[in-house]
Amino acid sequence: MVEAAEQEVQHYSEYAIEEFLVRAEPYYRAVGDEMELFSAAYQQHIPVLLKGPTGCGKTRFVEYMAWKLGRPMTVIREQQNGGGAQEVREGEVRVPLVTIACHEDLTASDLVGRYLLDADGTRWIDGPMTRAVKAGAILYLDEVVEARKDTTVLIHPLTDHRRILPVEKTGSIIEADDRFLLCISYNPGYQSALKDLKHSTRQRFISIEFNYPPREIEREIIQQESGCTEEQADSLAKLGEKIRNLEDHGLQEGASTRLLIYAGRLISEGIPPRRACQVAIVWTLTDEPELQRSLEEVTSSIFE
């Protein structure tokens, strides 16, 4: 069976979560001093809260910083299932990145770990947070307000001077690796009375605010990411800017950089720009016919 598996050509890579390293340099275009801030916080073990609207580059930023902050690490064992695992040579510069997208059913035990039945009884399995703490990774909790309230119990001891993770079920406490850093993200746009970050939690982080980049930078990003021409990228950035003007006038959220890039990619695949913007931006943003029509008029003014 093993042989058969080896013969199959694998088209995917599979890593243990703490071994997932950002290997190639991700593209990230700094808008302000966020890189310096993040590095400083990392050196000083200060947890970081990233605020910003959807698709403005928070996750990409964390990836980039994980790559950038990488430094010599001690041995990390190779995972058993072959192909995808990376060989990490000693002295190579890497910081693993563990990303957890939070959702409303995410419980503390999903993060810490749980006992599972084994042939000979039960076996403890570490959750992703425990693994990140042990491996000294950057732990990135995306959309943290979505997670259940009991997760804050875990976040608190990890984010103050103690840097410990109490594992209730095993009755143990894990001291975080020196390289460990907790980073959470949060979208103030969704903010409602029900889902807000508690102040006791908030005040354990420094906050870096993100917003959609200014037009020139956004153009650069779109062009880089989508491979369309500079002119097209500029038009897309212009469109983004115009659409965001409508944020308080009917649109719940403006077009994210990500959507603009999607449109750019469609364009570079040969889809006519107006159509690309319609499917990637207009229809994605709203279902209201009048608003759609207005956005399409803006699109048709900008693109030929």
Binding site: E241, K242, I243, N245, L246, D248, H249, G250, E290, L291, R293, S294, L295, E297, V298, S301
Partner: peptide, 15 residues
């Protein structure tokens, strides 16, 4: 009117 209003708002960035 509704369409043009949003159109103008988008372009000008003002209400």
């Amino acid at each position: 009117k509704g369409i043009l209003r949003l159109y103008c708002r988008a372009l000008s960035g003002a209400g």
